[in-house]
Design a protein around this nucleic acid. Structure first.
Length: 427
RNA sequence: GUGGCUGUAGUUCAAUGGUUAGAGCACUGGAUUGUGGUUCCAGACGUUGGGGGUUCGAGUCCCCUCAGCCACCCCA
């Protein structure tokens, strides 16, 4: 293996991989467009500051950064949301709201690779801007659920796990936890399922020495329903918002796909309200998608105050789950029709027939080498063709051609003049 | 960034420190020039990831490096 391989964490897309990717992308597009989202695209690299200003230096460790010839600091985009917020911000108040945008960006993160995590990958992004009402959160979560359904998944394969940053903030405040300990608590909550019970209790004691507050936290973290939280801690605006969200999801008939999970925190940064992640049912893979409300981001980039909610779904984890569940139907035909030249056919007739089929919008190919009929049929298989048409020979003399259905193995004689019209009726 | 495991044909994997490193699948060609998917036969395919060391002898043991997998960190 002396041939060069691509850089670490990148993939080559041969026709097989490309077909698989297109299967995912075209399903994504179909879903987005059925929800009335318009496609956008942004530059593949941006000024470094748009990523560092909102997060810390920790972020820079995972960025591909470089200087251009004008000595400007740039970075390959690790996510789309900052670019999107910038695009919205730069239109100021002139942009027509609500904005319903989707995009399938190619993204780059300098990360230690693991299963489901590469250095170059794609994401589907769906965002609604300009609506502060929870109806937008519901519409977007419905969108992510529908995206999964359109790919063939069922409620036995995945769940959207929903939480709220505001709810946790409000609960923590109400039981007397100072704001400066919130981030530690979020981080612990995020780790809760990965570490042992005793480790978790030790860590919790370090953050919260007061016994009575710790037992309140236990109650919050173990809560399985909004009603339970309400009965324990009273009513909060954020509880009502979540209840409204679940009520709305019922209208979409998507209740079975959505569950409350207080433990969903989403790695900090810009989320301001409802947050959610999509997991496979066994939670054996990393998150398939994640998102939530980010009402401050457009403002941060100098735009008018704009409420926003969005999510992103990566192609890598989703691809693995599709293969696990056997939902990929395989590569489509390369050519619908393969022309087989019998011995006496001249090349001019072969090409002319091919061109008339191609001009009618039906894909068609033929062997560029003069080989046996058996070999030509093998080529037809390799092209995954649905039909072969035999040109020349005895039939030719009567103005006929033999057309063969490659799946059924059946053959029919048709008039040479009606090849195109016949194909149009049977495809 | 930290720690562990693994690198052998295109691919999935064999080979106690000992002759010329093997097999399935895939690939190419063929089985009386007009019928594919099945079958049969043949062929091509390797600096054992790369470099260094130990040894009479290294795919096998040691070191370095690169790559992949896994657990951390992180996950926008």
């Amino acid at each position: 293996m002396s041939v060069a391989s691509g850089p670490k964490g990148t993939r080559d897309f041969y026709p097989e991989e490309m077909a698989f990717q297109q299967f995912i992308f075209s399903s994504w597009k179909k879903t987005c467009e059925s929800y009335g989202f318009e496609q956008i695209e942004a530059p593949m690299f941006e000024h470094l500051e748009i990523y560092t200003q909102k997060s810390g230096e920790e972020i820079e460790r995972q960025l591909y950064t470089f200087k251009d010839k004008g000595n400007r600091s740039l970075a390959l985009r690790p996510e789309l949301t900052p670019s999107l917020a910038r695009m919205v911000a730069s239109k100021g108040t002139s942009i027509k709201k609500p904005v319903r945008w989707y995009s399938i960006p190619r993204l780059f993160r300098y990360e230690k690779m693991q299963k489901g995590r590469l250095r170059e990958f794609f994401q589907l992004n769906m965002d609604i801007l300009g609506i502060s009402e929870v109806t937008a959160d519901a519409e977007l979560i419905a969108g992510v659920i529908h995206m999964m359904i359109n790919l063939g998944f069922t409620s036995n394969d995945f769940k959207v796990r929903i939480s709220s940053r505001t709810l946790l903030d409000q609960l923590f405040s109400s039981i007397g936890i100072p704001k400066n300990r919130f981030s530690e608590l979020y981080s612990l909550l995020d780790r809760k399922n990965k570490i042992s019970e005793s480790q978790y209790l030790d860590d919790l004691e370090k953050i919260i020495p007061e016994t009575n507050i710790r037992s309140d936290i236990e109650n919050i973290f173990n809560a399985e329903s909004l009603d339970y939280i309400e009965s324990k801690f009273g009513s909060f605006p954020a509880i009502n918002e979540l209840q409204e969200l679940f009520r709305l999801l019922k209208f979409y008939s998507f209740s079975e796909y959505a569950v409350l999970d207080i433990g969903i925190v989403r790695g900090l940064a810009y989320y301001t309200g409802i947050v959610f992640e999509v997991f496979d049912i066994k939670k054996s893979l990393r998150a398939i998608a994640g998102g939530g409300r980010y009402n401050k981001l457009v403002e941060l980039y100098g735009g008018p105050s704009t409420p926003a909610v969005g999510f992103a779904a990566g192609d890598v984890v989703l691809g693995e789950l599709l293969k696990d569940k056997n939902l990929y139907p395989g590569m489509p035909p390369r050519s619908t029709v393969f022309l087989v030249a019998l011995a006496d056919l001249n090349h001019k007739d072969l090409v002319a027939t091919a061109q008339s089929i191609r001009s009618s919008g039906i894909s068609c190919e033929f062997s560029l080498k003069n080989v046996s009929v058996g070999k030509q049929l093998k080529y037809a298989n390799a092209a995954r063709s649905l039909f072969t048409i035999f040109l020349g020979g005895e039939e030719e003399k009567q103005g006929l051609v033999r057309i063969k259905d490659m799946q059924k193995g059946t053959e029919n004689l048709i008039s040479k003049d009606e090849i195109v019209s016949k194909l149009q009726t049977i495809i």
